[in-house]
Design a protein around this nucleic acid. Sequence first.
DNA 1: CCATCTGACATACGAATCGTATGTAAGTTG
DNA 2: CAACTTACATACGATTCGTATGTCAGATGG
Lengths: 198, 198
Amino acid sequence: MAQRREDMIAETQAKLIKSARESFAQHGFAESCMDDLTAEAGLTRGALYHHFGGKKGLLKAVIQQIEEEMTTRLSAIKSQGPTTWDAFINGSIAYLNMACEPEIQRITLLDGPAVLGDPSQWPRKNCCIRNTQLSIEKLMEEGVLREVDSLAMARLINGALFGASLWIANAEDPHAASIKAVDAFLTLASGLLKSNTA
Amino acid sequence: MAQRREDMIAETQAKLIKSARESFAQHGFAESCMDDLTAEAGLTRGALYHHFGGKKGLLKAVIQQIEEEMTTRLSAIKSQGPTTWDAFINGSIAYLNMACEPEIQRITLLDGPAVLGDPSQWPRKNCCIRNTQLSIEKLMEEGVLREVDSLAMARLINGALFGASLWIANAEDPHAASIKAVDAFLTLASGLLKSNTA
DNA sequence: CCATCTGACATACGAATCGTATGTAAGTTG
DNA sequence: CAACTTACATACGATTCGTATGTCAGATGG
């Protein structure tokens, strides 16, 4: 029964990823020890090297899992909203909130880029930025937005939300900061100049 | 002559920082070896620990030096421009270009936040974000901008430019990407909605 | 001018961690 | 059932870090 074998392998990988997520989130990538990591999962470094090729490979797998979860959560939110614009704004705010979660911020936003480089070169095509880009293109097709390069704009938007999330997460009063950030983002998205309408 | 002593110390620290900048920029913080680092400067790890307390302390010193240089360069650019708005835009574009420089991107934008945490908690108050914030406040006083929290907006702007710089630096055609990014930033800054004027 | 002391920096050592090379046992296939 | 593949553990060497200690030049006070 080849099925049983596959299941056990998948389970082993899942255990390693789960353990790594906790360790990376708590101590950061650099301070995470592979021996502790794997022991927590009831395994040794041998399993880690076999399945993921090394510490960086494990980080890639962890990030991929987290991004998939983020995409799922974002898709659910984006499908709501009366207009495409509302969906875009709600999705952006949801992304901002997720980026404030310690696990996501630490692993995918801080350690990820530092260890693996530019997110767009990661294992699978970057889900969150891709989603933002598609929203922008849809809005341009609807004639709601001015014409711009959708990828460049998606990068700007994602970066802005990341910058804000870093601020919120380290603010003395994160809740208040979050409210200010959302307000500022709405202003930025709808126009900075006073000559623009809200 | 106490002056001579101080000079030699300053020279030693400068040599270590210079060597560290090159190593961090070329190999990244994690892959930089302190023995190689210090040997390149004609010293040993003893000097490094004595003056900077360790690897992270050296990174802090390097980042501080880089940020001071960036602030100097930005100030020169921001003092130009017919209006405050122009100065703000020119400063933002200049920041975007600087963020694309490998040394700055690698050390202060990738490794810095990952190793030392949120930039606003760094040794001295963060210069670049602070500058952005002051520009925004000035623009609000002039009545050019809508009312928003200046710090939150500065974080969004800085984050956006960082996100774009990461994209540009890794693009197949960085020059073309840079043009698109600037164009998109101008659109973002002046208003995403079509109901807004350029 | 000299004795003492402080501080800048080097050397020595131990501990932790990584990557690889090898071993083993279980499962798979013909 | 025999040969082979593979999932995973163990063993080993190489690096690198932090600290503890040593040393020598220069500052200081009499």
